[in-house]
Write a protein that binds this DNA or RNA. Structure first.
Length: 471
RNA sequence: GCCGGCGUAGCUCAGUUGGUUAGAGCGCUUGAUUGUGGAUCAAGAGGUCCGGGGUUCGAAUCCCUGCGCCGGUACCA
């Protein structure tokens, strides 16, 4: 019986044209993280189900992939890297040198409905400082976010930050019970997506959307909704200006001054380090859906591709390890959505997607010269040039050149009996012909022109290629 | 999860009120050109018409059902 070759929904294979820019991207991110002294950690893809779900409860488990082992224990695939980190910190507490500053790049799984740019397996690249109560740790995370986005050359971007503490002040200000906070924050988090009018309706009476689906409201009063609207309306050209308006609004709220002073400190440090309000904004409408955040929260968007949403986000979570029964350990960090960011950069045409890593193709035209072709290829490899030699069935030169063209291999080495006798090879730069083909009409002319070709003494081939490739 | 739309060649799609042997463009392979990519021309390969069941003399076409994809919405620890 024939089995159909196929993948379960939401999963995908990554071909070379996706993997090559992706690996470059991971290298760049790793470089920035290591420049801050973060160190690598790896944990298994599979964890005990109760470790993963913890206090999150049943609803957390519906989008989790479940797994069983031969002992029939209840296991699941991790859905983020923060929960495994908190497990590690709890499990090895005594042996870890705090602050534990680690990075981790790994796939995670969520059994959500797939959507454009959204898959059931995707890769996160996280940094976190665990055991770091100081707001300096938060400053570093935000600075690292900026440095990473700069290094990736993503174009214009904006990091926005706020704090759960500011949102808690909002609850006091509007007279909303603390236990309703997470629900209110969840609605506020949708502001970018659904807009203010719908947010207000969802906070109060609820509504029926365009498709006829009923959206239940939280039952806040009109007055409370109006207070929240005033709060959400706070903007400023600079962080200082926005912060001033928050101070003004919350002047009568108990404890507001101390909480807001912390934001001030973060902002001052960022300013001193050159992370100005053009890149890092204070935006009090940033809520982040996750319930576990306790302090500053951050979110980065690409200004040229806003439809991709936040590509890099995080915050402070001081209580996460308490679910394992330990003492609270202050922690802060951020996570980059590798797949989403790459999709955005592809969309913006900011990454090239070659189908091969090869820089040179050594063609095999004359079977009697095969050992010479091999010698050339290995000579180039030993000189640090990524080289492919024709290993397919014997083919005409035209077919071999066609492969170089399709795979976007920039250079081709051609050597027939003629060149061999004279101790030279023909080095062809493929891009020249690609440009000239626009104007060439007849095939005879095309062949005769031999675009981008030069003869190079065999002994100088490696040095010439190294120079052309900028080594 | 819920609402709506759509499943025909590798891709994008056409296919008459249900009627012979299911088509087009692009792509692919081969050749024209046995040492030159693009263009052009010629020839060729490629299909369980998403699966299953039903109606009918006859189903890609109509009905039921399962699956998948797309859009919206909910959820997102």
């Amino acid at each position: 019986m024939k089995i159909e070759a196929r993948l379960s929904r939401g999963l995908r294979d990554l071909f070379p044209e996706e993997m090559i820019p992706r690996q470059r991207m991971l290298d760049v991110i790793r470089g920035v993280y290591e420049s801050y002294g973060f160190s690598p950690l790896e944990t298994p893809a599979v964890e005990y189900l109760d470790v993963l779900s913890g206090s999150a409860g049943e609803e957390a488990q519906q989008s989790m992939f479940r797994v069983t082992n031969p002992e029939e224990e209840a296991l699941g695939l991790r859905f983020d890297l923060t929960v495994p980190l908190s497990r590690v910190v709890s499990q090895y507490g005594q042996q870890i040198d705090f602050p534990f500053r680690r990075y981790q790049v790994s796939p995670v799984w969520r059994a959500d409905k797939p959507a454009p740019g959204r898959f059931r397996q995707f890769t996160q690249f996280d940094i976190d400082s665990v055991g770091a109560p100081s707001e300096i740790a938060d400053v570093e995370i935000m600075a690292a976010m900026c440095d990473t986005l700069d290094a990736l050359q993503v174009g214009r971007y904006r990091v926005r930050f706020s704090s759960r503490k500011i949102l808690n002040l909002l609850l006091s200000y509007a007279g909303i019970p603390e236990d309703q906070g997470v629900h209110v924050f969840r609605v506020l988090d949708k502001l970018d997506k659904i807009g203010l009018p719908k947010v207000k309706l969802e906070l109060t009476t609820g509504y029926t959307d365009e498709s006829g689906a009923p959206i239940s409201g939280l039952g806040l009063s009109d007055r409370q909704a109006a207070q929240i609207e005033t709060f959400l309306g706070i903007t400023g050209e600079t962080r200082a200006e926005a912060l001033g308006k928050v101070r003004e609004l919350f002047a009568s709220v108990e404890g507001a001054t101390a909480e807001l002073d912390e934001i001030q400190t973060i902002s001052d440090h960022l300013e001193a380090l050159g992370y100005g309000s053009d890149r890092v904004m204070l935006d009090v409408s940033i809520a982040r859906g996750l319930a576990y955040y306790t302090g500053p929260v951050f979110e980065a968007n690409l200004l040229d591709a806003p439809e991709f949403g936040s590509v890099f986000a995080g915050g402070r979570y001081d209580n996460l390890v308490t679910r394992f029964g330990g003492q609270p350990i202050p922690a802060t960090g951020a996570s980059i959505g590798v797949d989403r960011l790459l999709a955005a950069l592809v969309h913006l045409k900011r990454v090239s997607q070659p189908k091969t890593t090869a820089q040179v193709l050594v063609t095999a035209m004359d079977g009697s010269l095969m050992s010479e072709y091999l010698a050339i290829a290995f000579e180039l490899r030993r000189a640090g040039v990524r080289t492919e030699i024709h290993v397919g069935r014997p083919k005409k030169l035209g077919k071999q050149l066609q492969r170089a063209d399709r795979l976007q291999i920039p250079y081709v080495v051609i050597m027939g009996g003629d060149e061999a006798a004279r101790g030279v090879v023909t080095l062809k730069q493929m891009e020249v012909g690609r440009e000239e083909s626009e104007t060439v009409q007849s095939h005879e002319e095309w062949k005769a022109a031999r675009f981008g070709q030069q003869e190079v003494p065999r002994t100088e081939l490696a040095a010439t290629l190294r120079r052309l490739l900028g080594h």
